[in-house]
Amino acid sequence: MITDTCWTPITTVDKIPLHEGRAVTVNGIEIAIFHLEKRYLTIQNKCPHKGGPLCDGIVAGTAVVCPLHGRRFDLETGMAVRASEPSSVATYPTRVEDGVILVDLTSEDEVTA
């Protein structure tokens, strides 16, 4: 069960422009928060391929494209979009309250590929 205490306030919504991502390090965990229309999604920032900063990637629909070598990950599931490159990134439940982005860092929805 998720209690209120799981949600960590990260930053205010105005810090993340539409269709862009920003990295934040919280309690030693480096996450990338993305702003899609009317919602925010959070994944681990490091690309599992060569450690590229996913926060700097171009958003394509609900996926992000790593700026280093073009790996694509779905922001909702964390799964690699191309079946030829099986891998995944952690995703973290994210919600907005009073203009503040809250991320649940305890329930890392690790997807096993």
Partner: peptide
């Protein structure tokens, strides 16, 4: 062009929940 174009976002102080 936006407030965090170059700025590294620092997490907020944990609020009392």
């Amino acid at each position: 062009v936006n407030p965090t174009q170059f700025v590294q976002i620092q997490p907020m102080e944990a609020r009392v929940s």
